Amino acid sequence: MPADPDPKDHRPRVAAERRARMRKRLIESAMIVFAQRGIGASVIPDVIAAAGVSQGSFYNYFRTNDDLLAAVSDALSHDMVQMIESVVGDIEDPALRVATGIRLYLHLARSYPVVAQFLSGTGLSLVGKKSSVYEYLPSDIKEGLKRGTFDEASADVALDMVAGAGVIAVHRMAQGKTTKDYPERIVRAVLRSLGVSAASATKLTSAPLPKLVAPPESLLEKAQEKLTEMAEPSNLRA
């Protein structure tokens, strides 16, 4: 009968923590590479180089581009949803919840260029039933329909309209400067397409938003920090 594990043996915990750090490092590097190159070609060699790991080490964690893309998407979605839900989770009005959530999403993308570049570079490949849009908005839209806030004729395509508007808006912000109220203009257009009156759409997008700042160890902060370091001239980093 094998002996019980030594409760003082910290090696399994240390090994697990090391693996978690390496996986996180690869995901951060992959996000930057996807942001710069999109998904049209194999990014694995570039991710290995950016992370400074061996090919063998890399393949202990991921096998394909799709594996990497899914891992980055999941991690980014988790970070962004946590931050946004901390604000919208207690909002009682479903229309205000939808408006505030989309506004925060767009402002986050503009505040973190690496996020906008990643989402723009990956484009429609991340739009689907596994995205946070399809996970969180259906219940808000159904509640809005029950209250008569949203137009029932638009409900069946509401999620696609929100997702499509988000993709285009983030792409435009990644490509260049947009007006300060650009996210609000996008959200007003989305609300109008859902049957919300012009006056109500303006009111729903006029309240001040809290400035969301990602935790220091989040993917948003770490990837943005790494991208900024990569962009600095070598003499400034020395």
Rank of each mutant, 00 (worst) to 15 (best):
Gln36Asn: 10
Asp66Leu: 01
Asp140Pro: 00
Ser139Glu: 15
Ala99Lys: 06
Arg19Trp: 09
Val53Met: 00
Ala49Ser: 03
Glu225Trp: 13
Arg37Thr: 06
Lys146Ser: 13
Val98Pro: 07
Leu145Gln: 02
Glu28Gly: 06
Arg103Ile: 04
Val72Ile: 00
Ala231Thr: 11
Lys211Tyr: 09
Met22Asp: 11
Gly176Ser: 00
Lys211Phe: 10
Phe34Arg: 12
Leu96Arg: 14
Val127Gln: 15
Leu209Gly: 01
Ala109Ile: 01
Asp4Trp: 11
Leu191Gly: 04
Thr149Phe: 11
Gly52Lys: 07
Glu143Arg: 14
Val98Trp: 04
Ser73Thr: 02
Met80Phe: 01
Tyr112Asp: 03
Val14Asn: 05
Leu212Trp: 02
Arg147Met: 14
Ile48Met: 01
Lys142Ala: 13
Tyr61Gly: 03
Ala231Arg: 11
Leu119Trp: 12
Met80Gly: 06
Ala198Lys: 14
Val133Gln: 12
Gln82Tyr: 09
Ala70Gly: 05
Ser42Tyr: 03
Met83Pro: 02
Glu184Ala: 11
Ala30Cys: 04
Thr149Gln: 15
Phe34Trp: 09
Asn235Ala: 10
Leu209Thr: 01
Gln175Tyr: 00
Leu106Lys: 06
Thr202Leu: 14
Ala199His: 01
Lys203Phe: 08
Val187Phe: 08
His10Ser: 14
Ala50Lys: 04
Ser42Met: 02
Lys180Trp: 02
Asp6Cys: 05
Arg11Pro: 04
Ser139Thr: 15
Leu106Gly: 04
Val115Cys: 10
Leu204Ala: 02
Asp181Phe: 09
Ala20Gly: 05
Ser86Asp: 05
Ala165Cys: 10
Ser218Arg: 01
Gly52Ser: 04
Asp67Met: 04
Glu135Tyr: 11
Ile141Asp: 07
Leu126Arg: 15
Leu69Tyr: 02
Ala153Lys: 12
Asp67Glu: 03
Leu219Gly: 08
Leu159Asn: 01
Glu225Ser: 15
Lys146Thr: 12
Leu220Trp: 09
Ala163Lys: 10
Ala16Trp: 14
Val14Asp: 04
Pro113Phe: 09
Glu28Asn: 08
Ser132Glu: 14
Ser234Ala: 14
Ser218Ile: 05
Tyr134Thr: 03
Val14Leu: 08
Asp140Ala: 12
Leu137Gln: 10
Gly38Lys: 07
Asp46Cys: 03
Ser77Arg: 05
Arg237Asn: 13
Ser131Pro: 15
Met173Glu: 00
Lys8Asp: 13
Glu229Trp: 12
Val43Met: 07
Asp79Cys: 06
Thr149Ser: 14
Leu236Ala: 09
Gly123Val: 10
Gly176Phe: 00
Leu69Asp: 01
Met80Lys: 11
Pro7Leu: 07
Leu76Glu: 01
Thr202Gly: 12
Val127Ala: 14
Gly101Ser: 10
His107Asp: 02
Lys222Pro: 05
Tyr182Lys: 10
Ser111Pro: 13
Val190Phe: 03
Asp90His: 12
Ala109Met: 01
Ala201Asp: 00
Ser193Arg: 00
Val162Lys: 10
Ser131Thr: 14
Ser131Glu: 11
Pro215Ala: 07
Ala201Gln: 06
Lys130Ala: 14
Asn235Glu: 12
Met22Ser: 10
Asp151Val: 13
Gly176Glu: 04
Leu68Met: 08
Ile102Asp: 09
Arg172Ala: 03
Lys24Glu: 15
Val162Gln: 11
